[in-house]
Amino acid sequence: MAKVFIYPATSLVLSDLVERWGHEPLGAALAIRERIQTASLDSPPLQMTPEEPKKGLKWAAVEVPAGVRGRMALYGPMIEEADAAIIINDADLAFGCMGCSRTNELVMYLLRKRTDIPLLDIKYPSSEEEGIAFVASIKEFLAALGGGEDA
């Protein structure tokens, strides 16, 4: 089972396909779950405290806005942990954890810079034909990672 970073990190489709074919999707939900299940934090709604933008300094300099650094505290560790990544490139309508374009640009770049892991660059399908190509590309990519559990 491989850990596959999904972009957009909030994508239903990618989360589903990765899990369906026996791998673990690394997305926003995991990072948020970890925080809201941590007792003693009191920073609703996401339990992200002002400490998070400081943690984000590892991936973005101090002159980068707090919202970018805070989001990088969510994604940075998962980017480093990932065994593979899938990027849907035209994710223009993504919000919340994926609502900042500057963060998103940095996340994609850091994923592409990880030349040691396989990466699939893809786009959203807009027809049945493209739907088939989309699913087939992902299936093929995930199969090549090996070790997929039968979900």
Binding site: D42, S43, L46, G70
Partner: peptide
């Protein structure tokens, strides 16, 4: 807004 939830500032706004 854009960013307060991820900057640890949303709670300050609520408060």
């Amino acid at each position: 807004s854009c960013g307060p939830e991820h900057s640890g500032v949303q709670k300050e706004i609520y408060d």
